[in-house]
């Protein structure tokens, strides 16, 4: 075998590297193209399943996932970079707002929640969409992980009205409120409870503006 100089070796390795890169990158992009429709369909189905968990399927009849408004950064809901609010209507009448809210003070960081609230401030359902709470300890906020399968903890918010409970009592029992928590994992419960309360108050104060906004529009500053 002949001895290569540095320059010749560089050219050789670089060209082989390029061939491999092009080959495998093309394979990746082809796969990406081939799978995109199926992935989007799956994601859509997944979102709808979540929506239907917190809002009964028959309660609305508008295309829920298309009827949303974009929110700008809203510290009140813990949304640093904005989020979406979906609007459920039945025959054009407002039924509920589905608000993405973030509880920043979870035991293991941020907890993302989807909260469905009707215009009177009554909670229709809450789900944790993303969290990293300690497995076996704080992850009971996800009903699939909750050991009390018959009566998941997070379902206690269903049907509770923010107006009736009052802001002072919208806390876990340990802090003097009305909501249960699990022993040893107060922080997770406290975070979810407080975030749900904030979402309810937000829905209560802003529901007119939110329902009136054009679908897909972006609300910069939500005002009264």
């Amino acid at each position: 075998m002949t001895r290569y100089t540095a320059a010749r070796t560089s050219i050789r390795t670089a060209s082989i590297m390029v061939i491999f890169t092009l080959m495998f990158t093309s394979m990746m992009s082809l796969t990406y193209r081939a799978t995109r429709p199926a992935i989007e369909a799956s994601q859509f189905a997944e979102r709808m399943r979540l929506m239907n968990e917190i809002l009964p399927a028959g309660a609305y009849n508008n295309p829920l996932l298309d009827d949303y408004v974009e929110l700008g950064p809203t510290p009140e809901l813990g949304l640093d970079r904005g989020g979406r609010i979906y609007r459920a209507r039945r025959d054009g009448e407002p039924v509920a707002l589905i608000i993405e809210v973030v509880a920043p003070d979870g035991y293991a960081g941020r907890i993302q929640l989807a909260v469905a609230i009707d215009p009177t401030g009554r909670v229709s359902g809450v789900r944790a969409t993303n969290h990293a709470e300690t497995p076996g300890l704080g992850d009971y906020i996800d009903p699939r992980k909750d050991k009390e399968r018959a009566r998941p903890w997070i379902n206690q918010f269903t049907g509770v009205s923010f107006q009736e409970v009052g802001e002072e009592s919208w806390r876990v029992r340990r802090d003097g409120g009305v909501f249960d928590y699990r022993i040893g994992a107060t922080i997770s419960a406290r975070a979810v409870t407080m975030a749900t309360g904030r979402a309810a108050r937000f829905a209560l104060t802003h529901h007119v503006a939110l329902f009136d906004a054009k679908a897909g529009s972006r609300l910069g500053e939500v005002t009264e």
Partner: peptide, 19 residues
């Protein structure tokens, strides 16, 4: 490169067809 491409392909395929 090969491994990463394969993993990406597996990832995408799972997402699409074994959701």
């Amino acid at each position: 490169l090969v491994i990463a491409s394969l993993v990406t392909i597996v990832d995408l395929s799972f997402n699409a067809w074994l959701h």
